[in-house]
Simulated assay, not measured.
Amino acid sequence: MTTWLHEERLSAVFAIIRDRRARSILDLGCGDGDLLLRLALEPQIERIVGVEIDPAALTRLQRRLDEAAPHQPPHRPEIRLVHGSMTEGGAALAGFDCAILLETIEHIDPARLSVLERNIFAAMRPATIIITTPNADYNPLLGVPSHRFRHPGHRFEWDRAKFLKWAEGVAARHRYAMVCRAVAGHHPTLGGASQMAVFDAIAPDGN
């Protein structure tokens, strides 16, 4: 069973996908497939590629896809799973309508974020990029001590100001329009439990 926070994140992401009418999706850091399995049920989506560095997670995801196959609606997108890193192989994954990084960037070493940025925003360059990540400002409301992160696998957790500054810089460097919003709660001073940046590529003619 998923948590309320995870459900809120998924709902926020799907709202953007539907609004942009995305037909081809990159799920970067797809893990066991909570997002990917739901994407497969979206009638507008024609192609999904999931990228994950953990081979055991890909094995579990493939098993889940196989188990779900008999219960799928007539429409089912083409699905491909790739064992790889979000910081590598970008040119081979170019041309997608939307790339999603759902609570994944905080698992990257901060020193590698510039590599991640170039790989996704320059080499892959999907039309829309959706990134969600924990909002460190909200941690006290979740009972997370100030000296700890929410998950032992996190390498960092950004407050809203730092995430916004990073997202604005990325957007400017790679010609994307960007908006940030709170996800899962709207505390008047602390924001939401997660935060989301949505990047839309700016065409060469400026539109």
Results as ranks from 00 to 15, higher is better:
residue 4 W to Y: 13
residue 4 W to M: 14
residue 12 A to M: 06
residue 13 V to I: 15
residue 15 A to R: 14
residue 16 I to G: 00
residue 16 I to W: 00
residue 19 D to E: 15
residue 20 R to D: 04
residue 20 R to S: 13
residue 23 R to Q: 13
residue 23 R to E: 12
residue 24 S to F: 00
residue 26 L to P: 00
residue 27 D to N: 07
residue 29 G to M: 03
residue 31 G to D: 12
residue 32 D to G: 07
residue 34 D to M: 05
residue 36 L to I: 04
residue 40 A to K: 00
residue 45 I to R: 02
residue 47 R to I: 01
residue 47 R to M: 11
residue 49 V to K: 04
residue 49 V to L: 12
residue 51 V to T: 02
residue 55 P to A: 04
residue 55 P to R: 07
residue 65 L to W: 06
residue 69 A to H: 08
residue 76 R to Y: 10
residue 76 R to K: 15
residue 78 E to C: 11
residue 86 M to G: 12
residue 88 E to R: 13
residue 89 G to C: 07
residue 94 A to C: 10
residue 98 C to A: 11
residue 103 E to A: 12
residue 104 T to G: 01
residue 106 E to R: 02
residue 107 H to A: 10
residue 107 H to G: 06
residue 109 D to L: 10
residue 109 D to H: 14
residue 111 A to S: 14
residue 112 R to G: 01
residue 112 R to T: 08
residue 114 S to F: 08
residue 115 V to Y: 05
residue 118 R to S: 06
residue 122 A to T: 10
residue 122 A to W: 10
residue 125 R to W: 04
residue 127 A to K: 11
residue 129 I to Q: 01
residue 131 I to K: 02
residue 132 T to Q: 01
residue 138 Y to W: 12
residue 144 V to S: 05
residue 144 V to C: 11
residue 145 P to F: 12
residue 146 S to C: 09
residue 148 R to E: 15
residue 149 F to M: 11
residue 153 G to L: 02
residue 155 R to E: 08
residue 155 R to S: 05
residue 156 F to T: 05
residue 156 F to R: 03
residue 161 A to K: 15
residue 163 F to V: 04
residue 165 K to I: 07
residue 166 W to C: 03
residue 168 E to A: 13
residue 171 A to M: 06
residue 171 A to C: 09
residue 175 R to A: 13
residue 176 Y to V: 03
residue 178 M to A: 12
residue 183 V to S: 01
residue 183 V to W: 00
residue 183 V to T: 01
residue 186 H to G: 06
residue 188 P to C: 06
residue 188 P to H: 11
residue 188 P to R: 10
residue 190 L to C: 08
residue 199 F to E: 03
residue 201 A to M: 02
residue 201 A to L: 13
residue 203 A to V: 02
residue 203 A to M: 07
residue 206 G to M: 09
residue 206 G to N: 08
